[in-house]
């Protein structure tokens, strides 16, 4: 059974239809890239999945339960962790505080401090730079460090699925490489399911896995990323967009 199922989801902003009847499923342990040019509706779709902007039509299921229109905190508590576009660190909070916000879901059970401490150690193992700077203000971190921080923060909620909107945004290629290295390592160690949004399909082809290509609010292609890279359909869909990307 699929972990995430998006069925005929439509998203509107006033009269503008940003996403039109999009449908796909994502199996446990899978890695899925959603790519497409500027304005394709990728981020809108992510926000709908996270419960931030409920869709105008269609339904979304996660882990066998319908989550359409549910509150973002409920969806997060079910194990779907969203890292939004632009990263959104809490700039005035310290790095460690940023991370601990994500353990809020354990407050019911006693001893969240203990749980937070062990979750923290795990994140620090993956991202040693965060441990080094744990007490400095998150707003002072570089873009790459902020990206590591928000991925680490998403891990603190102990998710089954992490959805990341444009992790490479504004990062130098070698920093993007590092970020992806960690993501792939995490997926292997924790059996995480990954949903990654990127404008360019280059990264998807490098990493491998499944890829969906969106344009104008609709899905044009859905298939194996590497196979798609060889086909001419991709170039046609992008209209030459793939040039000049890292």
């Amino acid at each position: 059974m699929s972990l995430l199922a998006v069925s005929d989801v439509t998203i509107r902003y006033g009269r503008l239809t940003a996403v039109r009847e999009v449908a796909f499923t994502l199996a446990e342990g899978e890695i899925l890239f959603i790519t497409g040019p500027n304005g394709a509706g990728k981020s809108s779709l992510m926000r709908a999945i996270a419960g931030v902007t409920p869709p105008a039509g269609g339904r979304i299921d996660f882990g066998g339960a319908e989550i359409t229109g549910r509150a973002p905190e409920d969806i997060a508590r079910m194990g779907l962790s969203m890292v939004p576009e632009g990263r959104d660190v809490f700039g005035s909070l310290s790095i460690e505080e940023n991370l601990i916000v994500g353990t809020g879901m354990h407050t019911r059970e006693r001893g969240w401090r203990v749980r937070a401490a062990s979750a923290l150690e795990e994140v620090y193992d993956t991202f040693p730079i965060l441990k080094e700077r744990r007490h400095s203000q998150a707003g002072l971190l570089s873009g790459g460090q902020q990206q590591m921080l928000v991925i680490g923060r998403a891990l603190m909620t102990n998710p089954r699925l992490i959805a990341i909107d444009e992790p490479s945004l504004g990062l130098a290629p070698n920093i993007t490489d590092q970020v992806y290295e960690r993501l792939i390592g995490l997926r292997r160690h924790r059996k995480l399911t990954l949903l990654i949004v990127e404008q360019s399909s280059t990264r998807a082809m490098m990493v491998g896995g499944r890829m969906i290509l969106m344009r104008g609010g609709q899905i044009l292609l859905d298939g194996d990323a590497q196979a798609m890279g060889q086909s001419e359909a991709l170039q046609a869909a992008y209209f030459g967009y793939a040039e000049g990307e890292h």
Binding site: P72, E73, M82, P84, L93, V101, G104, W112
Partner: peptide, 22 residues
Amino acid sequence: RFGLEMRAAAENFTMARMLGVR
């Protein structure tokens, strides 16, 4: 814990909610 959630929410409520803050 509550103070931390309040500070996070004051800075970016949507992000805090996406981390499970009620």
